[in-house]
Every structure is written in structure tokens, then in C-alpha cells.
Design a protein around this nucleic acid. Structure first.
Lengths: 149, 149
DNA sequence: TACCAATAGTTAGTGTGACAAATATATAAA
DNA sequence: TTTATATATTTGTCACACTAACTATTGGTA
């Protein structure tokens, strides 16, 4: 195995990640889900945690603060999320789903699980475990200081 | 294995792909490479093919035409690439590296191979083959009509 | 009290990605 | 030859990623 061959992983990884996002986004669109793939990730995490600050949420979804600010802006505009002032810390917000947001998550969750299955045709449970292990190893190799998940 | 667990691959895949790009970009920056990760991919492919049209190049690097147009614009501005008119087809360009572009690729290639190795610490050659197989299977599962590579 | 470093979040700038539509040119069909 | 269709590239718009710089606030410390 030469260095040159090893370097291909970055290309295949990027290409596949984009394809996965693009496929899901097309399905989201044809189903009139009214959210993007990344907005869904945020909604899903908010639905699993009663109240979160933007920093806590950013750590859950592994997005940086500016990106999260904009996603939250869009979700607020769409009426799925509300920023409530933190009772003790005036710098911070407490994020939570609106009623509309809760019912949006409830109605979309099964459809999205179904969309996500398509990628695993022709692959086994063992493949899935290996895939997760390799992805996490790569992530940790490049993540410098800290260990995540 | 529940549906719910399967759906995590998209999160891990996206997270890892971003980390890989981010890590490389940081190394590119601290080494004053004067190109982005995506610009490098384009330069590398141009260096391996004497003359390409934008459409041919787009198919090689799996980027869409508008994205490629803009990357080429930047590389031309930096003086690494030139658009030459196609002798028979006035709609098309023939892309090629300038002398500066050629020497840029020559000087960066070994450094970038070295950067790319970091991700594979603690992983085996077999892992690498499995990883490629799984990525390509996912890609093909979602790619609808055609078979790529 | 006054200062100062750390933290929460936002804004701005650049690059990239996806998609739709527009422009120009080439080629095939009538 | 005229018309229709296909191809190559560009432009515009929205969303996301990353960096740097900025505001406001908090908490510790002299």
C-alpha cells in the first residue's frame, strides 16, 4: 500500500458524505418536509433534550457557533423553535421546541428513518459496526486534544 | 439492530468528513500552501491529465459545474490554471496548469500525502479496504441510475 | 470597588455545495 | 435552410463550514 493509495480515502469520504446528504435532502424536498437535513439534526436533538443552550446544542451536533446561530434563526423563523432568556445568565438562551416543532418532529421521524435505510442495502450489520469503528478512529486521530463520544 | 441505530451513520459520516477536511485545511494554512483542500483536488487532477474541459474535470472530481466554475476562477486568479479556448468547440475551454501551477503541485504533493496519513493511525490495511468498499457501496446505493468507478 | 480573563452569542468575509435558470454554441432533424 | 434539441459554461440564490473579530455579561481577584 503506497502513500498515494491511502490518500484516496479523503476523496471517497467527502464524495460519499455529500451523496448521503444530497440524497436525504432530495427526499426531504419531495416529501415537503420544510426543513433541511441539518435543520432536522438540530430539531431531533432538541426533541431529545428538554432545554438546551446554544453551546450545549453545538456540542451535541458538532456544529460551530456561527453555523448554529443561523440554523436556529431559520428554525425560529419557521416557528419550530423558540429562544427563551436564561433566568440566571443574560448572555445565554434556553432553546426549546414549540408545539409546532414537537409535532413536526413526531411526524417526520419515521419517514426519515426510512430514508436513512436506503444507504445500507447490500451491507451487513457487521459492516455497520466496522464502519462506525473506522469513522470514529479517524475522527479521534484528527481531533487533537480531546476524546469525543 | 433497530432503525434508530442505523440512522446514526449519516451523523458520523458527516462529522468525520468535516473533520478530515478541517484538519487538512488547518495544515494547509499553517504551511502557507495558498490553496484550499478543494482547490488542491482540482490542481492534482489537472496535473494528472494534460488537458481537460471543465465537464471532464467535473466528472473526475465529482463536483457540479457551477462549483467547478468558481474553483477554476479562483485558481486562475492565483495564476495556477489557464483557460484556453477549445480549437473546435467555442463553448468549451481546455484547462491546463501554468508553470507556476505545475511547480505548486510538485512541491505540495509530498506534504499533502504526509498530512493524509495522520487519519490512518491505529488502522490497518484491511480496515482501509473495508472502508473503501463500504463507502463505495453506500455511494452506489444512493446514486440511482448510474454506476460510478 | 475596579480590573480582567473567560464565556455566550452574533456578525462579517470567504469558500463550497446544490439547484434552477440563462447564455452561447453545436448538432441533428425536418 | 430552418428548427429543434443537446451540450458547455455561467449566474443567481440559499444553506452550511470555518475563521476572525466583536458585544455583552459573568465571575474571579487585587
Amino acid at each position: 500500500m503506497t502513500q498515494e493509495q491511502y490518500s484516496k480515502y479523503s476523496f471517497l469520504l467527502d464524495r460519499t458524505a455529500r451523496k448521503v446528504k444530497q440524497y436525504a435532502q432530495q427526499q426531504f424536498k419531495s416529501g415537503d418536509f420544510d426543513v433541511t437535513v441539518d435543520q432536522w439534526l438540530v430539531l431531533k436533538n432538541l426533541s431529545e433534550n428538554d432545554v438546551l443552550s446554544q453551546t450545549e446544542l453545538a456540542n451535541l451536533v458538532f456544529k460551530d457557533h456561527p453555523t448554529l446561530t443561523r440554523i436556529i434563526d431559520l428554525l425560529c423563523k419557521k416557528g419550530y423553535v423558540e429562544r427563551m432568556p436564561h433566568p440566571q445568565d443574560r448572555r445565554s438562551f434556553q432553546l426549546h421546541l414549540t408545539e409546532t416543532g414537537v409535532s413536526k418532529v413526531t411526524s417526520l421521524r419515521p419517514e426519515i428513518l426510512h430514508i436513512r435505510e436506503k444507504a445500507w442495502e447490500n451491507l451487513s450489520t457487521h459492516d455497520f459496526e466496522e464502519f462506525k469503528r473506522i469513522l470514529n478512529t479517524i475522527y479521534q486521530n484528527l481531533n487533537g486534544e480531546s476524546f469525543d463520544q
